[in-house]
Design a protein around this nucleic acid. Structure first.
Lengths: 219, 219
DNA sequence: GAGATATTAGCACGACCGTTCGTGCATTTT
DNA sequence: AAAATGCACGAACGGTCGTGCTAATATCTC
């Protein structure tokens, strides 16, 4: 037990293992965003990456754990792409608008090749009880709480009317954003992103405390 | 070739085949609405229904044709549940509101056990080119045209402002409706349906030609 | 009745699935 | 140098997949 025994940071074996896991997960989120978590197969990942099936398997212990790790990896990517760019912005209506734009840019840029990872896998598992749905529900609550927090932030600055319903606004914004994604993908057409943007700004405008607030002028 | 030989409508053999096909498809839409079109398997359907694998297979000829037939069957069920109840209603804002309510009732009542069939399978195939995505895109265009038609209908009656953008309104309504579905399923909570209803009525109100139109009073 | 036709069953195939096992090998610890 | 640790490998397991065959069964036409 005495102190210096484990110097984990210089163990080349575990470093190599973590690197392999990262490689696997990078490919796994790509596959899952296009074809779903069910389409993840250990053999396919091994073939794609030039590894052995048992090597991939050993890194996760079970297929379900691989799927859960894939969800966690996607959560980090989402957070980096959507939330990080606006982290420094002070609360307020402007931050809320920037979030919408950040999300639309994230879906549009195909940060995941299948569009929004969570749109895909939530649809896949929202009616199938189990650890995967539980993990996705947690992620959804977190995302919803983030949006809701920005809405209440914009209300606290006085930019949104005090009697506006933050929950309804958050629901509406999320609905507009997320629905641009499948329509753009299904029809191979980017105009849904513009419609979503316009509709989101419009909703915020109709809930604004003062219709002449400069920040709202930009249509 | 001479006329009277085949009286197809009373041929008990093909009737029996059609009945089997219907039985298979009834189960197939249930499975696909919960687990997706990929989760359809001929062996599973045969086991569930007490048929032979080859019997199920023979009725469709290929797995892809089974999947396409499942989409067509779901389209009929959707049409009966959502569109038929308001078919007799004359065009106008009231019909548009009834459509929203009909859709929400359809999702809420679990006409498909996994919620909206098309929400599930569109997410599954929207980034996967092929005949299935093509069929789903066709269905989506049809659904979108229906909503758009009701919006322009409500504008033609003068209930919506002449300068309102029907495409944006249709996009917004569809987004609100469809997004109530996964949230309700994922969190096992029906309040998203109420939020969607409120938000849809609100959007229609802000696009109304006259804010005092009686039909719009009900919040 | 006989014979044509359409639906269903039985069986086998090759491919892939998740998982387990024993082993080789590089690294770290003693 | 020796022992212990942790990753990746190849082979094999029982299952399920979609899809071909062939045979049996039900229904129609004559």
């Amino acid at each position: 037990m005495a102190g210096s025994s484990t110097n984990a940071s210089t163990d080349g074996r575990v470093l190599r293992g973590e690197e392999t896991r990262r490689t696997v997960l990078r490919r796994a989120v790509e596959i899952a965003s296009v074809e779903g978590l069910d389409a993840l197969s250990i053999g396919r990942l091994a073939t794609d990456l030039g590894l052995s099936k048992s090597g991939v398997f050993a890194g996760f212990g079970s297929k379900e754990e691989l799927q859960l790790a894939t969800i966690r990896a996607a959560r980090r990517i989402f957070s980096d792409a959507v939330l990080a760019p606006i982290a420094a912005e002070p609360p307020g209506l402007r931050k809320l608008r920037l979030l919408c734009e950040s999300w639309l840019a994230y879906s549009r840029a195909r940060v995941f090749p299948g569009g929004c990872f969570f749109y895909e896998v939530n649809a896949e598992y929202d009616a199938r009880p189990g650890p995967l749905r539980d993990a996705l529900a947690d992620n959804w609550r977190e995302w919803h709480a983030t949006v809701l927090g920005l809405v209440t932030g914009a209300r606290d600055t006085g930019e949104l009317r005090a009697d506006a319903d933050p929950e309804d606004i958050a629901f509406t914004l999320i609905a507009l954003l997320e629905n641009a994604n499948p329509q753009a993908l299904l029809l191979d057409d980017d105009t849904p992103y513009e419609r979503a943007h316009r509709a989101a700004l419009r909703r915020l405008r109709t809930d604004a405390a003062d219709p002449d607030t400069p920040a709202l002028r930009a249509d």
